[in-house]
């Protein structure tokens, strides 16, 4: 049995060796991971310097770094980051909230579930980008359309995932609650919702990615600012330095948002084995 309070224990020499081995392995993984990145950047730079790569098409780490610095100084990079972050986060939140709510309603009513199923299948299969022209005509060019695109891409996955999570609630536990005279609402509150935390976190992780796809794709369609705009603009004027610099910024932003969700998971999933 596990005790909660960990008493200070005298470890044996074997155990200390074991811990050292574990730490050693982690160090190897990190060194290799970062090493590959550094080596790739270095190789890229060397190939660019020697002329093996045409920097006009292939850019180089140095040029990308310089472009980022230049963007910060002259083009207000943080303004573009702000726009894209705003669109992504709002799209993400709406997709998660609305998607979960719809999943709840579908969990509640079997009829609604059966009625909606074919619609969900079609909407899930449909490439949402195909709706681009319609969205622009209806919502105009700008943030509204971009957010709508992010919502559309995220919401269907959210509904399907969360609904499956809700429906997976243990049948025997439902039976137990019913034997206590529980109402459907009580079953929802005491079992289905707390039992779906893991599914919810999983869905959030997927939705972070979906929201980025939505916002960047939305900016490709119609925008005057944002990271996606910088990428498209860079492509149009053949400034690959700009395209790659903006992509690098995007990598950092998306990772940070994912880490945020991972942090939330740590806070929520304590003791839920």
């Amino acid at each position: 049995m596990k005790k909660k309070t960990v008493t200070q224990k005298q470890f044996s020499a074997d155990h200390i060796r074991y811990l050292k081995k574990l730490r050693g392995r982690t160090a190897v993984v990190w060194t290799l991971g970062l090493g590959i990145l550094a080596a790739a950047l270095l190789l890229w730079q060397i190939l660019a310097d020697t002329g093996a790569i045409d920097v006009f098409i292939g850019s180089s780490p140095k040029r990308i770094a310089a472009t980022i610095v230049d963007l910060v100084r002259n083009d207000n990079l943080f303004y573009h980051i702000g726009i894209t972050l705003y669109e992504t986060i709002v799209g993400f939140l709406i997709a998660v909230a609305l998607g979960t709510l719809i999943a709840l309603l579908l969990w509640w009513s079997e009829i609604a579930r059966r009625v909606c199923e074919p619609y969900l299948i079609v909407l899930n299969a449909l490439p949402k980008i195909a709706l681009g022209p319609i969205i622009i005509v209806w919502c105009g060019s700008g943030s509204k359309s971009i957010i709508l695109m992010a919502v559309l891409i995220g919401i269907i996955v959210t509904v399907i995932n969360m609904l499956n999570g809700f429906l997976a609630a243990d049948k025997d536990k439902i039976l137990l609650l019913r034997s206590m005279g529980a109402t459907k609402f009580q079953i929802l509150r005491k079992l289905v919702l707390p039992g779906s935390v893991k599914t919810f976190i999983g869905t959030l992780k997927i939705d972070v990615g979906m929201a980025w796809i939505g916002s960047v794709m939305g900016e490709y369609m119609t925008s005057k600012a944002g990271i996606g705009y910088l990428i498209v603009y860079g492509g149009q004027v053949f400034k690959l330095d700009l395209v790659m610099a903006a992509t690098a910024v995007l990598c950092v932003l998306a990772t940070m948002m994912y880490l945020g969700v991972a942090l939330l998971e740590k806070l929520l999933v304590k003791n839920r084995s």
Partner: peptide, 10 residues
Amino acid sequence: MLQKDQLFPW
């Protein structure tokens, strides 16, 4: 009371 304890893990 059921076959498994059905305690809620959370």
